[in-house]
Design a protein around this nucleic acid. Sequence first.
DNA 1: TGTACATCAGTGAACGCGCGTTCACTGATGTAC
DNA 2: TGTACATCAGTGAACGCGCGTTCACTGATGTAC
Lengths: 205, 205
Amino acid sequence: VVDESNGRRLAPVQERARQTYERLLDVTGVLLADAGIENISVNMICARAGVTPPAVYRYFKDKYAVIEALAERHMLRQFAVVEGWLSETLPGGVDGIMANMPVLIERLAGVTSAQAGAVWVMRALRAVPRLGVIRLESHRRVTQRLYEVYAPFYPEVTQERLLTRIRIGVEFTYALDELIAESGPGAAASIIADGGQMIAASFRF
Amino acid sequence: VVDESNGRRLAPVQERARQTYERLLDVTGVLLADAGIENISVNMICARAGVTPPAVYRYFKDKYAVIEALAERHMLRQFAVVEGWLSETLPGGVDGIMANMPVLIERLAGVTSAQAGAVWVMRALRAVPRLGVIRLESHRRVTQRLYEVYAPFYPEVTQERLLTRIRIGVEFTYALDELIAESGPGAAASIIADGGQMIAASFRF
DNA sequence: TGTACATCAGTGAACGCGCGTTCACTGATGTAC
DNA sequence: TGTACATCAGTGAACGCGCGTTCACTGATGTAC
């Protein structure tokens, strides 16, 4: 009885198993930061998580499936941040949204810094062909959601053009997230402030 | 008699050797696109280049040194594009520079699409900790150069703030380069046009 | 111009190691009656 | 409440393969006289 969709196998049902599963994800994040995507191995993950290799294969098809699950968890958390931010700023109209862009950037960066190795997960998503699709799918989803929100405010802009701009804006936002993650805490504040303004400015047509 | 600085070993002196060297770089680009950073191996590079492993070790310390050299070649080409573009647009002042942003984006994308696997090289640079420094160094260099050019046009902006904006702008530009590389030719045109405008807009303070 | 020699360029074969993965299994947890 | 059984969770040991890397070498190219 194997799921196999997307490389995931059995889902943990008991509490002990759920802990093992989460621990595997966390440990993978740490290792990704320490060793890098090309040096990480199932054996390493096991050793750090305190389990033996077959335990990993119970839940994941291979090491990419672990990274995939880790990435999805991270992107779901970021998506939740976007939703929360939208519901707060939407009453202020498009001006409120744009004025609060630095707030969004800051919160997204918070999610990234909270999870060890999250930047490296996102980088792995780009560098590994097999994992690229889940990043694209996630960006597509965010773009779609933002389009629904922005469209009423830009009646004079064609759908195609607005979608392109939003898609680029999403990409810019992720670039900022990464830039913040690799900067010291001093530089982070000004990147958040100026980066947010830059994205907002780029939505004046 | 070994160089060892940055993992490079002997430099090719004879013509035959120079061809082998360049072929190793080109083949590595292709393989990076096909197999991905985690699956590429020295053996694969050799097989595709029609040489045996020791031939690679003559010029490179390991496989990362090959990717590093490939990345540096690509970034030098892009830097040359930036210089050429600057000398053309600089007479038009800051307005000329900003108006011609889409031209820069397009040319950079041209360099990327001309070299097989160039996007994957840039992605590998992010994902592999050991290679990250050369990407940072390159971005720092471009940022510095653009600062020299922009500074006179923004006398009222503090140095720190202008540097931050340019740094972010550089990152945005690379993000566009990657976005274009993973888009179809139809979408590329509008990303170039709108992306260029977005970056230009983000330099209005 | 020819030859002897130096250096450059690349080969063939081999090595030990760690990787991904699987097998048959034991132990832990939950549940029917 | 106790016991028998089913399912879940993880172990221990082993495997073959391809990896990175090195050795002593042959062949190709350049150069001094």
